[in-house]
Amino acid sequence: MGNPRLVDPARLVQLTVSGASSGCIYGLIALGFVLVYKATEMVNFAQGEIMMLGGFTAYTLIAKAGLNYWLGAGLTVVIIAAFGFLLDLLVLRRLIGQKQFSVVMLTFGLASIFRAVAGMGWGYDPVGFVTPFTNKVVRVGGIVLSETSMSIIVGTVLLCTALYLFFARTRMGLAMQAASQNQLAAYYMGVPVKTVFSLVWAISAGIAAIAAVLLAPVAMVDVNMGLIGMNAFAGAVLGGFGSIPGAVIGGVVVGVVEQMAGYFLPAGFQETSANLVLLAVLIIYPQGLFGTLTRKRV
């Protein structure tokens, strides 16, 4: 436990960077939540588990099959995105029109299935693979930062830029925005709403796969890695659950808070800090920070 007077600035920077890097992972998962929620009003509690599947896929391709890191990572993203597409096509599409609660519970059920399947297929021991960043450090004026942390942050920034361009500039991106604002109107304007929804699932699964590939060198891949999805949730809520930059920023904030809590507060607070932040935010802003819920009109 740290004594506040003994905290040197370099340590603070290191904490912030490592917090921000795990926060970026939260942010990426949160992004997946928010994309799917905005488009389809479903909340995918299995997002963390999809990331876990991505981690194992990458492990199989890179460590087992011996593919080049970049090739393996790319393939992983494609495979998991296709998985997300199929998941919507085969399972979630059938739920349109049912209660939101049913969908929430369905994704919890899917999460359990994914964990069980991964455990049967890959076992319960943590695994990892070598990346170009493993065990390398960057020194910036006496501050030692690991290259893996930096790769996560850089990767997140790049991905967010790409997503922004996709949504703002491409035809499909605009169609997705339209479909998320008004399904019926988008449908009448010729947007293939169902396909768009499946593509949104594909994108959010792909993002989860990227998060897994980025995270793998820091935390090993194991069956329960999806549980960090809960922290990502805090990030998504903090960011308003409807805003894409909000999700990433919220995730980063949660990550930094977690690191700081682990350093400055008694044991136990690190694990719950994300939950405490989340509850506090919800109590103060019951509709989320930039609430998308409005009152029903009668």
């Binding site: 909340v43 939101q100 609660f101 929430v104 809960m230 949730f233 805090a234 809520v237 659950f241 044991a267 136990g268 694990e271 719950t272 994300a274 939950n275 405490l276 989340l278 509850l279 919800l282 109590i283 019951p286 509709q287 989320g288 819920l293």
Partner: peptide
Amino acid sequence: LPTLRMSGLYLAIATLSFGSIIATVLAK
């Protein structure tokens, strides 16, 4: 009490965190 104004999704999330806070307290 604090979840009165929440509905649906947000209530699910809030109770989820509450549950995990209790579990942590029981452990720590």
